[in-house]
Design a protein around this nucleic acid. Structure first.
Length: 662
DNA sequence: AGCACGCCGACT
DNA sequence: GTCGGCGTGCTC
């Protein structure tokens, strides 16, 4: 009897067997419907066997084979690898490769007719560095070749991607382009359509409807779409003629999925490029320390674009202003206020960057020092206006602003610090005639809100932009000549080992928004620590040197990428349940590892970076090894032992290569 | 992920 | 005495 092993979208550690009715064509990669726990689910056939592992009478039959292209081998292999590397359920990993709308019955959409084969359009003018990078990428087509494209902000990385993509398309190949954020897809898409008008490009991200996503998936899987542009979920799209992968802003943490299957799209993209024998280019103005390490070790070819592109201005000038000891108006230094009014006179645009939304990050009693805290999280409540309320940015808890301190009864409660709302008010009162927009998650929540603001910026209908990091990444605003950075010092106090790297990248990115189209740019950073290396880096525009300093520090401290890390995260309502579980998991791990050099090191459990969230006490346990293979050998036995160790009420997850830990 | 099974608080 | 709370475990 023929039995199909099916990966179903369940958290189960195993696949499930079904018998294959005669005449049903089923093979590895087939997408099927199968009945489980009296409902039908879409699953992926991972193997076909003659024997059965389950008693015949318990075996159900495959209900039907979906009217969809089968998943190609590289995609099923990639899902197997993801499940095994990240210690996740095989069914959840394979579900990443399925198009949405499979829960509903019904046949696949008919699909668009194939478009004409792309023809090469006139290439854009490239400078020598860009031309050299393109030549390297083009000559690598047809073989696995990872590149790190380190291009300063405004140096024209996108032109390099597009020129390489044009060549890949001309040879009949498909190109996969991954960007970290949905907000970056429209800008990339329009440049792409301009540069490659004959390419059939589709987008793929979570803001699209299921129908749109399915249409894009099908066009890609059928080989009709020649270019797929999307966020991390687009990584799993079947691409029968894949010829080139581009990962833009490769340093960005958004490529790491932080729940469910905790994969890193950039890392798995490299795996897929290797599996498919195609080149991959990881591009950034601020590459990750990991990628610099790969380049230094000769595993990645480093391509550098040190200069700004032909029409762009020189690098912006950087000035530091100490907020401490200076007369400040609502957190704004006089130097920044002067620079802002200068821009208004010149009818140029300015961006004031503050990485905190809301009015004030905290509400404090001036008499006794009490601060408003979230009842369900180990975090301060953030004061918001319009209407006045307190909000927890971790669990969404909302409450009214209290009139008096609950500890001492004092009615003098002080909003502490400055967020985007407060800055907006301050700038409105300083510059009543200026057209000011606040761009953060609160103002861009609605669909299309970001594009609308973007259009206003481009049409010069705005003078001052107040933005969080969503405005710092990758955007190109030609009339923007001034960037003010507020609250940068906050990041210096973070416990996370990656906080300095993140701050350096964010500062470089946000500074890079200034002066991109011929107009001189200026950056004013308010900091009490202008001598800190991260700020010196900004002033000298030498990110690579700074990254290598950090890499050396990581080697000394044996932190990633000098070591490989996995963390066990646990949460429960009672702290004692978390502690007991992590202590037992710790004891188990200690018993299983040798403790020798190069083996796995097991650290004691500690509270998580956010020790309580939404009423759950949280803890974590770090295991690490200088050898990735040693860690990978240890993790499966740990994962398999944990269900028995976990007491009731404890939820847990293993996070391999976590984005951050302390 | 559902959905049933299984032990502890307020009702017809 | 039951109805039902959701915590726990299984699904081919």
């Amino acid at each position: 009897m023929t039995v199909a092993r099916v990966a179903l979208p369940l958290a189960a550690p195993q696949t499930f067997d079904y018998w294959v009715p005669a005449g049903l064509a089923v093979a590895r990669g087939s997408v099927v419907r199968a009945r489980i726990a009296r409902r039908a689910l879409a699953g992926v056939v991972v193997g076909v066997d003659q024997s059965e592992s389950v008693a015949r009478e318990r075996l159900h039959s495959i209900e039907e084979v979906a009217d969809l292209p089968s998943l190609p081998d590289d995609v099923t292999d990639m899902c197997d690898f993801v499940a095994s590397y990240y210690q996740s359920a095989p069914g959840l990993a394979h579900a990443l490769a399925l198009p949405p709308l499979l829960r509903r019955r019904g046949r696949a959409a008919s699909g668009k007719p194939p478009v004409a084969a792309p023809t090469a359009a006139a290439p854009a003018t490239l400078n020598d560095d860009q031309a050299r990078a393109v030549a390297a990428l083009v000559s690598a087509l047809g073989s696995f070749s990872p590149f790190l494209l380190h291009g300063a902000t405004g140096s024209g990385k996108t032109e390099v991607y597009l020129a390489a993509a044009r060549e890949a398309l001309a040879r009949g190949g498909q190109v996969l382009v991954l960007v970290p954020e949905i907000n970056l897809t429209p800008q990339f898409e329009s440049r792409l359509r301009g540069a490659l008008p004959n390419a059939h490009a589709v987008t793929l991200h979570s803001a699209l409807s299921d129908g749109e996503r399915r249409a894009s998936w099908l066009a890609a899987a059928r080989g009709e779409a020649s270019l797929v542009l999307g966020t991390r979920l687009a990584l799993f799209t079947p691409l029968p003629a894949l010829a080139l992968i581009v990962v833009d802003e490769e340093h960005d943490d958004s490529f790491k999925q932080n729940d469910g299957v905790r994969y890193h799209a950039r890392d798995i993209a490299v795996w897929r490029a290797h599996r498919r024998n195609v080149p991959i280019v990881l591009g950034s103005a601020t590459p990750s320390i990991e990628s610099f390490a790969h380049a230094d070790a000769g595993r990645y070819t480093l391509l550098e674009l040190p200069r700004r592109a032909p029409r762009a201005a020189a690098f912006p000038s950087i000035t530091f202003v100490a907020p401490r000891g200076h007369t400040m108006r609502e957190g704004l230094s006089q130097a920044l206020v002067d620079a802002l009014s200068q821009r208004l006179e010149r009818r140029e645009q300015a961006l004031v960057f503050v990485n905190r939304r809301g009015f004030a990050p905290s509400l404090k009693c001036v008499a006794c020092g009490w601060q408003a805290g979230c009842p369900r999280c180990a975090a301060r409540l953030v004061l918001h206006r319009d209407p006045d309320h307190l909000r927890c940015h971790h669990c969404g808890h909302r409450s009214n602003v209290i009139a008096a301190c609950p500890e001492c009864g004092n009615v003098d409660l002080l909003p502490l610090g400055s967020g985007t709302q407060r800055l907006e008010r301050a700038l409105h009162s300083l510059f009543p005639a200026a057209r000011i927009a606040r761009i953060d998650r609160d103002t861009t929540r609605a669909k299309g809100a970001f594009s609308a603001i973007r259009a206003q910026i481009e049409a010069a209908e705005l003078d001052i932009l107040i933005g969080t990091q969503m405005l710092a990444k990758g955007h190109d605003f030609p009339r923007l000549t001034l960037v003010g950075v507020l609250g940068a010092d906050n990041a210096l106090y973070s416990a996370d080992f990656r906080s300095t790297e993140r701050l350096a990248a964010l500062l470089t990115q946000v500074a890079g928004r200034a002066g991109r189209a011929g107009l001189a740019g200026e950056v004013i950073v308010q900091t009490d620590f202008p001598e800190h290396p991260v700020f010196s880096m900004l002033a000298t525009h030498d990110y690579a040197r700074f990254a290598r300093t950090l890499l050396e520090e990581r080697r000394i401290a044996r932190l990633p990428p000098a070591s490989h890390v996995a963390i066990l995260l646990a949460e429960a309502h009672a702290r004692a349940d978390v502690d007991r579980f992590l202590d037992d998991a710790h004891a188990f791990a200690r018993e299983r590892v040798q403790g020798g050099h190069g083996d796995v090191e097991v650290f004691a459990p500690v509270p998580a970076l956010l020790a309580r969230r939404a009423g759950y006490e949280r803890g974590q346990l770090v295991v690490q090894s200088e050898r990735r293979s040693a860690l990978q050998a240890f993790l499966p036995q740990w994962r398999d032992a944990l269900p028995a160790i976990a007491r009731k009420r404890v939820r847990y997850a293993i996070d391999v290569d976590p984005a951050g830990f302390c």
